[in-house]
């Protein structure tokens, strides 16, 4: 497998996956705490609209300032970052309820990303929250590393599949528009019954067959669209197989490459930590789940997959 430099350097990570409650916020806080503990400068950004509670996982109060100030008054991001009580790690709240989230224009999002990239940090970890809103998908698409959190439940599987499918569709549409082929995807998708196109995969194959030059663009976009999968709240070792299966389905039906980086078992000490207002990774640093977090965070940092004795 070729390793592009952006993959190793990947500074901006987005943690998403469609369904709410799969543990995105927990995993964001745990990854951040672990990397900060290695002496890297980390900032967490909470953009979980309507459910921003990353601060609770760190045992601190809700920050008073948020990205709303960035969008409305042009406050600099570094002014919005608050201390988390953990060395090397700060938090920016994305609480943007006061602003109708639909009114954030695409250019504003680009501006936000330009500022995020300029932050003097080694890693920026964004907690996307649930749902497949365009804002969420755009943030997901702009990140260097796209991490998705899956729970071994049918609802989580379904929501994640649709989240990825929507994200991929949006990415293809945007990049083809850049090349001036916007209509091709849309027209074909609208007339999909006529063409007997049932899936995104079939749509892509169809476009490739009809316009070979567009096929090249699609192939490039697909090879750039890498996913990192984490399985959360597993209750038996059999559940681990769901990670490998999801990877197979993404490849076969969406042509997307996935790295299955690891899993965390279901652990009551996660909510106990929130109640005790102490970060899990510090409070239960010797627990099995903390070790599992360390394993997949190292894999994320190095772009590696989890080693399963039997995959």
């Amino acid at each position: 497998m070729e390793k592009s430099s952006t993959e190793k350097e990947g500074k901006i990570w987005a943690i998403g996956g469609g369904k709410g409650g799969t543990g995105k916020t927990f995993i964001t806080s745990a990854i951040g705490t672990y990397i900060a503990g290695k002496g890297k400068r980390v900032v967490l950004i909470d953009v979980d609209i309507g459910g921003a509670n990353l601060h609770s996982f760190l045992g601190i109060n809700r920050p008073k300032k948020s990205l709303t100030d960035f969008f409305e008054t042009g406050a600099s991001l570094s002014k919005l970052a608050v201390k988390t009580g953990i060395d090397n790690m700060s938090l920016i709240s994305g609480d943007i309820h006061s602003l109708a989230s639909d009114s954030i224009k695409f250019t504003q999002k680009l501006k936000l990303f330009r500022h995020i990239m300029k932050l003097n940090k080694n890693y920026v970890i964004i907690d996307l929250g649930g749902g497949s809103h365009n804002n969420t998908i755009d943030t997901f698409l702009m990140a260097d590393k796209r991490v998705v959190i899956l729970e071994p439940e049918i609802t989580s599987v379904e929501n994640m599949y649709h989240f990825i499918k929507n994200a991929l569709f949006r990415k293809l549409r945007m990049s083809l528009r850049e090349y001036g082929f916007k209509e091709i995807v849309e027209q074909m998708w609208e007339r999909r019954q006529e063409y007997k196109i049932k899936s995104l995969r079939e749509l892509m194959d169809h476009i490739r067959d009809s316009f070979s030059y567009v096929g090249d663009i699609i192939d490039k976009e697909l090879s750039d669209f890498k996913l990192y999968l984490i399985l959360n709240k597993i209750r038996s070792s059999d559940d681990i197989l769901i990670g490998s299966s999801m990877k197979s389905i993404f490849k076969k039906y969406l042509c997307v490459d996935t790295r299955f980086v690891g899993f965390v078992e279901y652990d009551d000490s996660v909510w106990r930590s929130i109640r005790e207002r102490r970060p899990f990774m510090l409070n239960y640093s010797l627990s099995r789940s903390a070790k599992e977090v360390e394993v997949f965070t190292e894999n994320l940092l190095n772009g590696k997959e989890i080693k399963l004795s039997r995959s």
């Binding site: 379904e158 299966s245 197979s248 389905i249 995959s311």
Partner: peptide, 19 residues
């Protein structure tokens, strides 16, 4: 692994059941 995935009704297959 793959034979098992595609021959049983794994939960992972639900999103693509139509196809």
């Amino acid at each position: 692994r793959l034979k098992k995935l595609y021959s049983t009704d794994s939960m992972v297959m639900t999103p693509i059941a139509d196809e």
